[in-house]
Amino acid sequence: MVTLRDESLGATDATGPTVGVLALQGDFREHARVLGELGAKVVLVRRPEDLEGLEGLVIPGGESTVMDKLSRAFGVAEPLKRRIAEGLPVYGTCAGLIMIADTLLDTIEGQQNLGGLDVVVRRNAFGSQNQSFETDLPVPALGEPPVHAVFIRGPVVESVGEKATPLASLPDGRVVAVEQGDLVGTSFHPEIQGDHRFHEYFLGKVRARASAASPTP
């Protein structure tokens, strides 16, 4: 098996859960590095067989239209949808949030999503790159201090369905982080910022689910 220049993926003898990072396009190496630092065994996912044995999956930032096309062209989308429906914990940042949202606005023609999160998400909701920004964002579930959040042509959650819960909102009330069971989505990019609390929060869900599925003696 050819490696994906994966020297940055952390220790191969990691003892933590096995977490995939969808590696079709985008900043997947940044996620892989964070997860590796937190002790996860990291697998880069480009093909259906890469999903085997995963206890969680991160969908990175990048271009959702490209990830959508490639995930369908290489047969990852359908098995991944099934795994999400079966309860695979997934954390999506930016394009990843778009991929796991149930309903999308401002898509391109033919764009599909994996779904799972009961939310309506609007792509590029802030406008062009000139409107991209960073800001301190209070996230009650993570406590103090606020998360320093970097928004890059980011989406927003336009409405939160009954099954989902907002985790953070901008001062104007727009929701930019949500969760629903073991699914987490953020409009922003903790992976390029150095604050690992969102990844830790997600790994907590992955561990809890794994131990519930197979209680250790």
Binding site: A23, L24, Q25, G26, D27, F28, R29, E30, G61, G62, E63, C94, A95, Q129, S132, F133, E134, V150, F151, I152, R153, H189, I192
Partner: peptide
Amino acid sequence: VKRGLAEMLKG
């Protein structure tokens, strides 16, 4: 923010 967009274009 400026370097960040390039990060998202990778691959």
